[in-house]
């Protein structure tokens, strides 16, 4: 196990490094500049700005500076918001995105699994139809449409909840609802189909024959195996949701880090692009690593060391 973890750790570092390098050359390959504006720009002013951010150096020098910054995890000042460092932006935005993401994941997991299990147990019954209709709606309605709709209803028409911003628990209800619906639907459908499969297995019949209580059969025997596919997608889902979602954060004016992924690219804000990319890929590979660990806990037949290629 320890050997495997060390090996995986090195793989993770290499993966992040490859992603970072690719991103660096891709972002410099796109035409455009962080100082492009519709207004005419003065040459001297432009030159001063480029010198200030080291963009007048040859690309290989910039790449060297960039690697140094990754190693020290200090990405320098943002070009768009020059009084703030990228580290400031990430350390301020990430906890908020993380908070929203955690609540969302918990809501999505709990409600998704319950819906899926209930639907599977009452296969082809009314509850199954209802649950799956909810799931289909959840998958097919984009969250930004749902967000605008629920703001209009809950905040404007009925005046029950605040429309936007991020300052009290009440402010979290609508964004969580908008954000959790999609993942909840995906989890519900996955749980349902794998539950259906598991429930026909011999060992479930065996458990029934032994006279175990239905609850015990479902939670102890069936669900544990049915959750494997859910765990598989959970890693990517977690990384995506925890690091913030551009659209939802924009609509609800949540000061998370989601917007930096999109806006930094539009602005060619190179330090922020590299900061968010390195940060996101680190989280992503780490989540995938956690998923592998979770596999072995859920299914003792999976041996991590063997998977590591020994």
């Amino acid at each position: 196990m320890a050997k495997y973890i060390i090996k995986r750790f090195f793989m993770m570092v290499i993966t992040v490094l490859v992603i970072a390098t690719l991103t660096f050359f891709l972002m410099h390959a796109i035409p455009g500049s962080p100082f492009n504006e519709e207004r005419g720009t003065n040459e001297a002013v432009q030159a001063n700005l480029e010198a200030f951010y080291g963009l007048d150096e040859p690309l290989y020098v910039q790449y060297g500076m960039y690697l140094k910054r990754i190693a020290t995890f200090d990405f320098g000042p943002s070009i768009k918001n020059p009084t703030q460092s990228v580290n400031d932006l990430l350390s301020r935005g990430f906890p908020i995105s993380f908070e929203l993401g955690m609540i969302t994941i918990i809501v999505a997991l709990v409600s998704g699994i319950i819906l899926g299990v209930v639907a599977a147990l009452r296969h082809n019954g009314i509850i199954d139809y209802v649950a799956m209709t909810v799931a289909v709606l959840g998958i097919s309605i984009p969250n930004f449409v749902l967000a605008t709709l629920i703001i209009q209803k809950f905040a404007v028409d009925w005046q029950l909840l605040p429309a936007a911003t991020w300052s009290s628990p009440a402010h979290m209800v609508l964004p969580t609802l908008a954000l959790a619906t999609g993942p909840m639907a995906i989890i519900a459908r996955l749980t349902r189909s794998s539950m259906l499969e598991v429930l026909t297995q011999d060992y479930i019949k065996m458990a029934k024959a032994k006279g175990l209580s239905p609850l015990k059969i479902v939670f102890k025997h069936a669900l544990r195996n049915a959750l494997m596919p859910v765990v598989t997608i959970l890693g990517t889902l977690l990384a995506g949701i925890l690091t913030g979602t551009f659209v939802i954060e924009k609509i609800f004016a949540i000061p998370g880090m989601g917007k930096y992924f999109v806006e930094s690219i539009n602005n060619r804000d190179y330090p922020v692009i590299m900061g968010t990319t390195v940060f996101y890929s680190t989280i992503l590979v780490f989540m995938l690593f956690l998923v592998d660990i979770a596999y072995s806990l859920l299914d003792p037949r999976i041996k991590l060391a063997a998977k590591g290629g020994e």
Partner: peptide, 18 residues
Amino acid sequence: WAMVNDVNTEYQMYQSGD
């Protein structure tokens, strides 16, 4: 001064009195 970067949300906040 709020920092709401979505005109639809801004307008909905205006409607709700925020």
